[in-house]
Design a binder for these strands. Sequence first.
DNA 1: ACTATATGTTTGTATTATACAACTAATTTA
DNA 2: TAAATTAGTTGTATAATACAAACATATAGT
Lengths: 141, 141
Amino acid sequence: MENSLEMIELELAILIRRITSASGNKKIGHLDRSAYLILHQIATNGAAGVKSLAGEFQLDISTVSRQAAALEHKGYLYKIPDPTDGRAYTFQITELGLKELRDDKRARMDRVAEVTKNWPEEDREVFGRLLRKFNHGAISS
Amino acid sequence: MENSLEMIELELAILIRRITSASGNKKIGHLDRSAYLILHQIATNGAAGVKSLAGEFQLDISTVSRQAAALEHKGYLYKIPDPTDGRAYTFQITELGLKELRDDKRARMDRVAEVTKNWPEEDREVFGRLLRKFNHGAISS
DNA sequence: ACTATATGTTTGTATTATACAACTAATTTA
DNA sequence: TAAATTAGTTGTATAATACAAACATATAGT
């Protein structure tokens, strides 16, 4: 148990360091990670406002507000006023946004495929499952 | 295969987003992730110069130079001039640095333990192993 | 040996993602 | 209706990073 914890924590630190080194961090296609996740979230779960998105990603509302505004500016999202609350908006994804999301996801998947190209398929499945499980419990700090 | 790739890439993006959200990103004990990895690397593999550390972490040399200087300033590292090359130094870890590293590692392991507290031990072992395997192939981009 | 080139490191500058705080407008509550 | 709360935006500060310039030393070519 101590050993597996030690390996997980070290490898997580290395993973984060590598993936977020600015060289690899930035856009994969046209989307940086935040943009990608926002588009993915909206494409998957429907229109959402900055507050709910910020909660989802554990980011400050102001951060998401700027990111969403940037995506709107690029034509990937558009704002829908909330008819029941004059302060509130939701963002919905555009056709262009969907296209960018698809292209970006494909590029990201290709990178994962490259890194895991010699893995048995079972390892890929287990890795995905455990990452998901970890994320679901990972709101610790 | 498509499915597992899709899950891995999405969960990786989520993991990075969560772990690097500034709330959880920062220092765990006294060390941020870069500092932790530098101390860990030196403690494990011996004294090293900024060039080799930068290569190890895929960071720019200038970035590591500043990080190492900060760790030296705090008394966690000290500089050893390379006797065969008047330009070069290596950094070695101090007793204080070792203590910080131990404390920090303990705190990081505790966080992992918390997140995985309901996992069967086998899942922890497999997760650690797959993370390591992924990292070893992960210098793609 | 001398000059030109290359190398290891540090320092200057710009960018970017983020948080926190101040602000605006609209809604809810007392 | 006045006060408090809420959704969102904008201003400001911080930190990690890369890239470029500078510096000191080493190496190579002649």
